[in-house]
Amino acid sequence: MTWEMLVGASVLAATLRLATPIALAALGGTMSERSGVVNIALEGSMLVGCFFGVVVADRSHNIWLALAAALLAGLLLAALHAYASITLRADQIVSGMALNILALGLTTYLDYEMYGTTGTPSDLVAVPDLHLTFLNGIPYVGTAIGDQNWIVWVGLLLVAALQVFLFRTVLGLRWRAVGEHPRAAETVGVNVRRMRYAAVLASGALAALGGAYLSLGVAHSFTDGMTGGRGFIGLAAMIFGRWTPVGALGASLIFGYGNALSTSLQGATVGGVRLPVQLLGTLPYILTILAVAGFVGRSRAPAADGLPYETEGHA
């Protein structure tokens, strides 16, 4: 085992790449739960984002349309969740589970119908990497961040912007108020229902951007179930990050680092003993548990998180 394997520039670059889709899902979860709606359909939103982004990229050959389709697909799935949980006051966990199953069934079904025997086309338009040529000469930094995908940078910007939005703006204050004390927020004139709808829709779009990153930014193709549970990891990252955008990013980076290690440490020996490649796979998960248990500990959800809100007329 060498330092290069543990903290080399390429490990850092990989960390950032692997953390991005999780951070975007976590960001979505944060926005939704801050308004008081639990959205475990992030995985589903990511997956439909992956798929419909690719479909439109294939049909239109226009990356902007493809991205728009990805976000719209994630948003529409989230809209179902919003309708169920806000308007119908449905059980938010059940609705979320249902939509995850729906997203997987639907994308797998359509993928087979549309691209079954051949796979998605090889000449898809894609979201390019951003080559920061001025960093070329700089050791370490150049390798670490010089060739990241555009969506990585957009994701980082979104983290900063939403952190400011939630905690430094009036609208953000209202957003959080709806998640903490919806009754009180309503008394001062906030439309709880509208705010929550906006939050859930935003969460779907954010998660779908994470999905688009995977399919249009990284893989340039779609395969069934390609999100592989990242929406759920994002959910964990959201809690780990204490329902803040910056915290969610931090948690995602820790997870991404564990994931990067499970690649870079392959073939490494400790005291002459080769690390079994299967056990290396546990690294991101164990690292996350240790980090949460060691440094973060208790985290408190928004007080009204998961509780349906009934306006006076309804109760």
Binding site: L235, A236, Q278, T282, V292, A293, S299
Partner: peptide, 30 residues
């Protein structure tokens, strides 16, 4: 972990689900 350190069970259960899959690979493959 929840009792001692306040770790939310959603985090731990998700992480432990994945952990055992890889441990199982190891136990049953090599």
């Amino acid at each position: 972990l929840k009792a001692l350190r306040g770790v939310n069970e959603v985090i731990t259960t998700i992480m432990l689900n994945y952990t055992i899959v890889f441990v199982m690979h190891w136990l049953l493959q090599a």
